[in-house]
């Protein structure tokens, strides 16, 4: 029982992240509105980023900005005192790339709306089928 509780306490964070990923993936698959799909994609992206940040967390450590100055220069920084900065670096760029992909995805959605007059995936597909019959070789 004690071991199970320990397991839950140390892993609950990851499980919530996995639940968030599942929400995002489910929205991407089942929602028919394109903007809803894009929101699902963003939730999946931020959940993956949260997973990486959780991996970088370190108990009893402080933020990765080194103490510097006269008093602190006497002893070199120790790795156990600072949170692992590497996931932060990778995810910082990932967030900005995520907003660029969001911009391109929304531009595509606006273009699709201009041509079809709807954002609903089923309606767009229903409009596409007769056109392919007309324009046959």
């Amino acid at each position: 029982m004690e071991a199970l509780w320990e397991q839950i306490l140390t892993k609950a964070n990851y499980w919530m992240t996995i639940a968030l990923m599942m929400v995002g993936l489910y929205a991407m698959i089942t929602k028919r509105n394109l903007v809803k799909k894009i929101i699902g994609m963003n939730i999946l992206q931020t959940a993956v980023i949260l997973m990486f940040i959780s991996i970088g967390a370190k108990r009893g450590a402080t933020i990765p900005i080194l103490k510097h100055g006269d008093a602190a220069a006497a002893h070199a920084p120790r790795a156990v005192d600072y949170i692992n900065p590497l996931p932060h670096v990778l995810m910082l760029t990932a967030i900005v790339v995520a907003v660029s992909t969001l911009g391109v995805a929304l531009a595509l959605a606006v273009k699709i709306y201009q041509q079809n007059g709807t954002l609903d995936e089923a309606d767009i597909l229903a409009r596409q089928v007769p056109r392919s019959h007309e324009g046959g070789p």
Partner: peptide
């Protein structure tokens, strides 16, 4: 475990 200072991610190059 979450926040483990000896996790593999915190030992290689960081």
């Amino acid at each position: 475990a979450w926040g483990d200072p000896m996790a593999p991610a915190s030992r290689h190059v960081s």
